[in-house]
Design a protein around this nucleic acid. Sequence first.
DNA 1: GTGGTCTAGACCACA
DNA 2: GTGGTCTAGACCACA
Lengths: 122, 122, 122, 122
Amino acid sequence: MIVIDYRDRRPIYEQIVERFQELILKNVLEPDSQLPSVRSLAMDLSINPNTIQRAYVELERQGYIYSVQGKGSFVSENERLVLKKKEEILDEAVKLAKVAREFGMKKEEFIRVIIDEFGEVS
Amino acid sequence: MIVIDYRDRRPIYEQIVERFQELILKNVLEPDSQLPSVRSLAMDLSINPNTIQRAYVELERQGYIYSVQGKGSFVSENERLVLKKKEEILDEAVKLAKVAREFGMKKEEFIRVIIDEFGEVS
Amino acid sequence: MIVIDYRDRRPIYEQIVERFQELILKNVLEPDSQLPSVRSLAMDLSINPNTIQRAYVELERQGYIYSVQGKGSFVSENERLVLKKKEEILDEAVKLAKVAREFGMKKEEFIRVIIDEFGEVS
Amino acid sequence: MIVIDYRDRRPIYEQIVERFQELILKNVLEPDSQLPSVRSLAMDLSINPNTIQRAYVELERQGYIYSVQGKGSFVSENERLVLKKKEEILDEAVKLAKVAREFGMKKEEFIRVIIDEFGEVS
DNA sequence: GTGGTCTAGACCACA
DNA sequence: GTGGTCTAGACCACA
């Protein structure tokens, strides 16, 4: 479920964070289900437990998971998270559109590739 | 013309690279015009010359500038660079659209914010 | 494995880059095997770590190695690199042949020394 | 006759040296004919006279030209020079062939591109 | 421990 | 004066 790409320039803990975000937002990991323990995931991925720990701390900070003393880490409700994520995506889209405009791209040119990605009949 | 943001998480040399890219792509710095010398820019920005040097090396590697032994650094022709930059922007747009689609966003919702950015009548 | 020639006019970092290219292309250093750390190689060669770092950055840029945050530098797959290198060699051969022709050398004269190098029965 | 390419990474004086070598070896500049004066060539090329001076010194050192006090610089006999140049080219060819062999290239593969360059019927 | 960034300062080739 | 290379040494994020 989690795959580390060592050729990826991003730090390992960040890759883990992003992967869990994705799994949670897409509901693959359902609310209140338990995440693998730090130690077991560290074993599975042949990674330093500190690195997993760091990823979990970050996920908790962002509200993706919550931890229960002595029991483990669990997935949070994701409704708000999905909304937040969508906002982030739209913010990025606006920024990108701004840059595109500044470099003289036509609106049509820019939107064309997006429509293609979504599929003509959306 | 160049401003360093120390709160920015990106390294200084990278901020300098991006700023010059922008100035060159937008033709503020015209082809064959001379850049400030490594030393003078270092003085201006109160930054170590090595850091400026690193930025210039990177800009040369990317084709934005060329340096002449004992004379200085000069702006390259930017036609190709602009095209390349536009392609990069479109690539990013496609990636972003893909992510948006994966998180269940509607095409209209996504495109709306872009059209707003470009201005309704484009 | 790495030897610096101080009489060589090329900069130290470039000698290091070329030597590693050779070791990687010839499979002496196998894919995913770890390179010596910046610090340890600097110690071994009695060279400043910055110089080694510069060589590693260049090797990464050219695709010969990849570095992992906090873990070290590792050898990339070399298949593509070997093909690219062969192309470069052939390009050089063509250029040289062109110069030879321009200076009035006979094809036979030029090819003779090459056949000798490869060995008569190839 | 002399063109400086500022985008060329080689120093200006070196470009001048190489260009004169070529003109002399190809007999465009005939033995005992006079070279432009340092000052006039500097004017023509909009270059610092020191740079031209340096190129001429280097050409004299290599035997391509000789200077007469108060008269100027003149082209040397080029017979020996042509032979020497040819030897240099052959040396380079041998080196290149050696590298090609070390990287596992077949003799035929290497010679093919050379024959193509010379033209099938040589 | 490992790579990444930066400062301070030196020396070199070149124009 | 201009860029290019290198040393010495520091601090940071990451594993």
